[in-house]
Structure formats: C-alpha cells, structure tokens
C-alpha cells in the first residue's frame, strides 16, 4: 500500500494520502486531509467523537487502520452541508440546542445521519440505540432525540413529529 498512497473517496471526492498501518483513519483525516471536524476524544473506540460513515455504516475512525480505508467511501461531518445550506439534522441540532460544548456533535451527527438514512421514522429507542456509542458529557441526550425526530419529520416532508 506504500506505493502511491491510500486512495479512497471522502465526501464524494477522490482523496489520496500517505499513512502506514501504525496510523488510523482518524489521524489520516485530521492530519493528512485537514478534515478536523472529526474529533479525537479517546482514541480507544469508547467515546464516539470520531464517528464517520464508512461504506454506509457509522464507525469509529480511531478504530480503522489507515490502510483499511483503501477503496472505501468515507463521509465526515464536513460533507453534511450541501450547497443549499446545512443538513436538516444540523439545523435541528441548532434549533433544539442539542449540544453545549459541541465536541461530541460531529460524531453524534454522523451516527444519527446513518440512522435516518436507514430509518425515516425512528422511535425514541431506535435513536438511543443509534447513539449508544456516542458520549455527551454536557447536554445529555434528550435534546438529541428531539433533534433527530424533528429532522426525520422534516426529511419525510413536513409532517409533525412521529
């Protein structure tokens, strides 16, 4: 893998970086690609601050060896906002105050986006399960549940909450 570096798709764009197996996808994203939206909380797979979507599934970027990203489709928090503005979930997080310090927010968003893409009408339990690997140490989780339900309703087309 050393020759030519590691190639993958990050937020829809071809990306290429040099990183050996002693480095993680998290380090590659932050240090090689400059995508510092993905946070480094514990580097141990415990806190979820580094959750990204890899080939459609939420994963801890700190628990992926950099070379394992070869050929993968990676989405980070930087890829959520489209030309038209913030992702509905990002807006809902703002409107419901689903964060205080914001450190857990990128990981929370990516876990919840993966949920919404698989399930457009998530129950409270579905949401709590989806964020079971994302630790928030200031606001708590109630506002996150509210934000996800608000975004889900908006994404379904303007109905009220489920």
């Amino acid at each position: 893998m050393a020759e030519g570096g590691i190639r993958c798709t990050v937020n829809g764009q071809e990306a290429r970086f040099e990183a050996g197996p002693e480095r993680t996808l998290l380090q590659a994203l932050r240090e090689e690609l400059g995508l510092t939206g993905t946070k480094d909380g514990c580097s141990s797979g415990d806190c979820g601050a580094c959750v990204v979507i890899m080939d459609g599934q939420p994963v801890n970027a700190c628990m992926v060896l950099a070379p394992q990203a070869e050929g993968a489709r990676i989405r980070t928090v930087e890829g959520l906002a489209a030309a038209g503005g913030l992702h509905p979930l990002q807006r809902a997080f703002g409107e419901t105050w689903a964060f205080q310090c914001g450190f857990c927010t990128p990981g929370m968003l990516m876990s919840c986006v993966a949920l919404l893409e698989a399930n457009d009408r998530p129950s409270r339990d579905d949401i709590l399960t989806a964020i079971a690997g994302n630790f928030c140490r200031c606001t708590g989780y109630q506002a996150v549940v509210k934000a996800v339900q608000q975004a889900a309703a908006e994404m379904r087309g303007g109905e009220g909450p489920a």
Binding site: G45, G48, V59, M63, S111, A132, G133
Partner: peptide, 9 residues
C-alpha cells in the same frame, strides 16, 4: 455488544 460503530467493525 459495545455500540453501533464498534459493532460495525
């Protein structure tokens, strides 16, 4: 087991 991101790896 753990949470979804670890279960996926």
């Amino acid at each position: 087991f753990a949470g979804p991101p670890i279960r996926n790896r």
